[in-house]
């Protein structure tokens, strides 16, 4: 694959790889219990966040299946790290990728996640030539559900009690989008929150 040119600029954000000095801003949201779901390693204290940061600092490109690219979302004006998005190249033969995202709740509700995820999907489809991108989320995470619908992603799966998470029955949704379905300026689609699969 052709070389990746980073950082990526969006309207209000700079998306760049993680740096050692990101630890404080990362601690501000990564330790929250609600963040522990699709993280690369569990983080309950600063030392564990440092481990997670070390992992994410290595997520700099997609060379082979299994690789992950993780980009910090940095606000243009004040240079504050407000969250991150990542793209995992899960399967080469079928061109599959998974996106994940975390945002500091203090900065949510302003469209930053949508902006970052939009740039990540552009990258996935245009640069990495991925065929299908999927994302998982907690069935109770209404912000994430809304975000994925806004991205134009389809609800593909709604698992009920298929696993245990933190000692309780879990509910998980999968959303997906194919390369031919992705539109750069995806129109905001207001779908009902729990519409049926298929």
């Amino acid at each position: 694959m052709s070389s990746l040119s980073l950082p990526i600029e969006t309207d209000r954000l700079v998306l760049r790889t993680f740096e050692r000095s990101d630890i404080d801003d990362l601690c501000a949201y990564h330790m929250l219990p609600t963040m522990q779901r699709y993280v690369f390693s569990r983080t309950r204290d600063e030392a564990e966040v440092a481990c997670a940061l070390a992992i994410m600092r290595n997520h700099v490109s997609l060379q082979r299946p299994g690789d992950t690219l993780t980009l910090a979302m940095v606000r243009k004006g004040d240079k504050i790290l407000i969250g991150h998005v990542s793209l995992n190249w899960s399967d080469a033969t079928a061109g599959q990728g998974e996106v994940r995202f975390c945002i500091n709740p203090s900065y949510s509700g302003q469209g930053f996640a949508k902006e970052a995820l939009g740039a990540l999907l552009d990258l996935a489809f245009d640069h990495f030539r991925i065929h299908r991108i999927f994302a998982r989320c907690d069935g109770r995470s209404h912000h994430s559900i809304k975000l994925m619908q806004q991205m134009g992603m389809r609800l593909e799966a709604h698992y009920r009690e298929h696993a245990l998470f933190q000692g309780e029955w879990d509910e998980e949704l999968h959303f997906a989008i194919l390369d031919r379905e992705w539109q750069r300026s995806a129109k905001v689609k207001e779908l009902p929150l729990r519409h049926r699969v298929a």
Partner: peptide, 25 residues
């Protein structure tokens, strides 16, 4: 119940796979 409808998430016998997952609790 139908819980999942995956589209083109894998290759099956040389073409795109489309799969249902059903479940009962």
């Amino acid at each position: 119940r139908r819980e999942a409808h995956f589209r083109e998430h894998a290759i099956f016998k040389s073409s795109w796979d489309e799969e249902y997952i059903y479940a009962i609790l």
